[in-house]
């Protein structure tokens, strides 16, 4: 069983953190991952920076631009993570856009992930249709779980299809927005959480986008298995530096 699947069986609401690799400094990647695990984070999304992150808001876009300026590349990230499994046990997911993976070579990329001990990938601009037709076999060969997004606008039939192709969890985007929106969850959003929960999907759901503090984490996980925090954590890093990065985690639980 993959570490993601194992973690999802634990009887708790999972706290997952996203950060951009190579930000604020190029070599912060490993220490951030270790700190997060040591302070109770259940799962980590390591952001592979991209020049044109379409689905992200200004916070993640800016951290990505800075990480690229710092010299972050796909190869560099793999080097940094080479020994990560000597110290870290929680599930690790790489989240990035498709073009850098395509240039690295999709199979080579997947192979490298397995060698390092990466458990899954989130690639927002690789649609489920293309994945199931062209890349699913390669992902499975290297035992990688691919995570797909759904939104409040995703039709029921398509959610069922995504559920059938998924084998880890479904990334439930909280609202129609890019990352980093902080509108709070209104009654529409709660109805959507309930509706999805009521569909009895085979994959558990983890909520992302718009979760920034203890209150929104609590609301997001009322009907789901966990939640992902990204932009709010990066803002904290920008303001307080890596040394104090765990202070943020402590405010959530």
């Amino acid at each position: 069983m993959n570490r993601i699947q194992q973690k999802l069986q634990e009887d708790k609401k999972l706290l997952s953190i996203y950060f951009t690799a190579g930000y604020p400094q190029i070599n912060d990647t490993v220490s951030i991952i270790e700190d997060l695990e040591n302070n109770g984070v259940d799962m980590i999304e390591i952001g592979l920076p991209f020049s044109d992150p379409l689905a992200d808001g200004p916070t993640i876009q800016e951290s990505s631009t800075q990480a690229l300026r710092n010299g972050m590349t796909t190869e560099k990230l793999f080097q940094q993570l080479k020994d990560i499994r000597k110290t870290v046990n929680i599930p690790l997911i790489i989240m990035g856009y498709f073009n850098p993976m395509l240039q690295y070579g999709v199979e080579e990329f997947c192979k490298k992930c397995e060698e390092i001990g990466i458990d899954g990938l989130i690639i927002p601009d690789l649609p489920v249709d293309v994945y199931s037709e062209k890349y699913q076999a390669v992902f499975e060969k290297y035992k990688l779980i691919n995570v797909f997004l759904i939104t409040p606008q995703t039709a029921e039939e398509r959610i069922r299809f995504i559920d059938s192709v998924s084998n880890g969890f479904i990334y439930m985007v909280s609202s129609a927005s890019v990352t980093g929106a902080t509108s709070g969850f209104g009654s529409d959003t709660k109805d959507y959480f309930k509706r999805i929960s009521g569909m009895n999907l085979k994959n558990p759901q983890i909520v992302g986008f718009g979760i920034s503090d203890k209150q929104s984490f609590k609301e997001a996980t009322e009907y789901s298995n966990g939640a992902i925090i990204g932009s709010a954590y990066i803002k904290h890093l920008t303001k307080n530096g890596v040394e104090k990065n765990i202070d943020f985690v402590k405010t959530i639980r």
Binding site: L54, A55, D125, L126, P127, L149, T151, Q153, A155, V173
Partner: peptide
């Protein structure tokens, strides 16, 4: 060609 878009744009 094709449509390599995030799920948010799919509908």
């Amino acid at each position: 060609g094709g449509a390599y878009i995030p799920e948010m744009l799919y509908p």
